[in-house]
Design a protein around this nucleic acid. Structure first.
Ligand SMILES: [Mn+2]
Ligand SMILES: [Mn+2]
Ligand SMILES: [Mn+2]
Ligand SMILES: [Mn+2]
Lengths: 219, 219
DNA sequence: CTCGATTGTTAGAGCACCCTAACAATGTAG
DNA sequence: CTACATTGTTAGGGTGCTCTAACAATCGAG
């Protein structure tokens, strides 16, 4: 099994590839808060173990083996988050840091039981998909709220880069997954949007917020 | 916070001191499956951090700080075991290895919630006491079954060194914590005991088994 | 008291992971 | 096409934890 450290590298590689396409040494260095030379030598080590294809000055590419290993760590992370929320009563803004550690436990039965107890979920508490036991990830069909037009009716299905502060913001506005928005107006100047939340209250969100809300049309 | 490795050393030190009194480098070496030179240098490091009093060729002695740190790891381990059994449906013979890893998670809220969800237990699934949040351990009043005499009626309150094979043995004989035994006979030749289990079935246990069953007189 | 077994220590090295300083390659703006 | 910013690499070193080989201290039996 991969070490705690290696698992975190793989997860970061996987996440960055899925949002930025190409992953460079610097991206990983920023994301993991580790120096570039450290990433560089880890890249060589991961290549050695067949997790990565690495060529000098070229973007890093996970191999099939690397992708699967990464997806399985993501699976453990997201199952843990789901378990923490559903079975242990934590808030969706409290679970990421705990899951960041629990994901490294080597005990398949532990995660299998979590899966069972929360009813084999397909998404985590932030709407991100949970890879299956083989490491396959289901793509979720959604767009950023910021890309929607006036008049559309959408429902919140996920978040892109759910940070603690975003989650707190959403909590304070009473917003949760599944809630609906009727888009009333888009301000051309700064891209802020005015919507009707849950068919009831009017709310205005900055572009920054709208870019991080992933929604599904046809509410 | 102490590293995964240091936490395991502290826990071993604590456990060995509580059962063997004096703890030597070799004891720890055996218990942790690590070479004696490794233990030797770790002893110096732990001394450096104030967890241990170390003098050449003398037994190792945990300081108050060391004892508290160790007890808090034990607390996390045993709360985890309790949680795994009570909330997740694992058997008492499956939880130790999982807890051995989960105990190293740095997230007080995680363990506090476990504690709450299982109702602030004082003993783990094997009858061992759970230290409190300050690191105080309650001594449990018990004796080995092997030290009891014919005619006594006792109840099982714990196990000394509960190994997987012991737990499996007990399971296969339908024995659980809280069960009662009427001591019918003690074989002078090999120390084996014949008892009435739960006031119903007759069973005979070898000395080896009887030495690991901790019981309470006056059932 | 002495010898041999046990236990503990030192020396020397390796592996995983991390760092800074210096330099090289790459890509882009002018 | 050059100049500069960005990105990546090498060199060299450090920490935590581990090991084996060799040697030293301690303890108990005879
Ligand atoms: Mn997360
Ligand atoms: Mn992690
Ligand atoms: Mn245990
Ligand atoms: Mn452990």
């Amino acid at each position: 099994m991969a070490s705690h450290t290696v698992e975190n590298y793989l997860k970061a590689l996987f996440a960055l590839a899925n949002e930025a396409g190409e992953v460079g040494i610097s991206d990983l260095s920023d994301h993991l808060a580790v120096s570039k030379p450290s990433v560089n030598s880890m890249a060589k080590a991961l290549q050695q173990d067949g997790f990565l294809k690495y060529e000098k000055y070229k973007p890093l590419k996970l191999t099939a083996k690397g992708k699967k290993a990464a997806a399985l760590v993501v699976r453990k992370h997201r199952l843990t988050e789901m378990f923490l929320v559903e079975q242990m009563g934590f808030g969706w803004d409290e679970v990421h840091d705990i899951a960041e550690q629990v994901e490294h436990v080597k005990a398949p039965a532990f995660f299998d039981r979590m899966d069972e107890l929360v009813g084999f979920p397909t998404v985590d508490p932030h709407g991100s998909p949970i890879p299956d036991a083989q490491g396959n990830v289901l793509e979720i069909d959604c767009v950023k709220l910021s890309e929607c037009a006036v008049g559309e009716k959408v429902s919140l299905v996920g978040l892109s880069q759910s940070s603690k502060s975003l989650l707190t913001f959403l909590d304070s506005h009473g917003i949760a997954l599944g809630h609906t928005f009727d888009i009333r107006a888009v301000e051309p100047f700064d891209g802020s949007m005015t919507v009707v939340h849950q068919g009831a209250t009017d709310q205005t969100f900055s572009l920054k917020v709208c870019e991080r809300l992933l929604v599904n049309k046809e509410a």
